[in-house]
Amino acid sequence: MDRELILALRGVTCRYPDAPRDSLVGVSLEVRAGEFHAVLGPNGSGKTTLVRAALGLVGPVAGRAEILGRPAGGWSRRELARVVGVLPQREDNLFPQRVRETVSLGRYPHLSLLGGMGAADRAAVERALVACDVTDLADRWLWTLSGGEYQRVRLARALAQEPKLLVLDEPTASLDLRHEMQLFELVRALVDAHGLGALMITHHVNLATRFADQVLILADGRAVARGTPADVLTRETADRVFAWPVSIVPFEGRPQMIPLRQRKEAP
């Protein structure tokens, strides 16, 4: 079956103005409908730059970034927001807001200048609330939510955009185990049930290999490995990328990484 190609990076190299070196060097990636991709790598390895290049916020100095066959930089922000829903790492809440209002912001790229929310827009908001299991929270103020609930609400906002691709930048940072698992399960379910493409930046190697179809490991802006979890997460690669000795053990057919204690030699 040939699934629709949503995001394609072909040898993308990026450099910020005045930066001493390239932030991203010749990285390639293809995300198709119904695929869950995870991007791994230490801090400063270029993960966020990869997302910015994919979404046309940073222009590549070499290579091409394309969304649905068009250069990422050639989309207007409004057009792109109808195709790609993003959970950035950080955002502010300058003024108090309720959950349903927040999710409704996801409809903005679909609304005309003077028109209001129509029945179709409200239906999309309700579907997104249901899909992320936050219907019960709809009338709550945002500041009363737990970290896990807040992330699910933001995911609902991205879904309300009715995108083909979800991009998530470390969505489970600072979540406890239960909420972290819930979020990974939710993203997996959305990919399977709605045929969305998903691209998630994460530090959780073991969850990435268990939930994602494809894994990309970045180090110093270069793609160190790309492919299925079993192909990518080997001891040699992990040792090198994370600069720490590890052991790789299989669990339910997926590789899991166990960091090793540093043995101190007795004098």
Binding site: R77, E91, D92, N93, L105, Y108
Partner: peptide
């Protein structure tokens, strides 16, 4: 008045506003 909706988005921050379709 024409900028009303993008101004709602700007309260989230410049980058999030762009991801929701605002030409910041």
């Amino acid at each position: 008045v024409a900028a009303a909706r993008p101004l709602d988005l700007l309260a989230l921050g410049e980058e999030p506003a762009q991801y929701l379709g605002a030409d910041v």
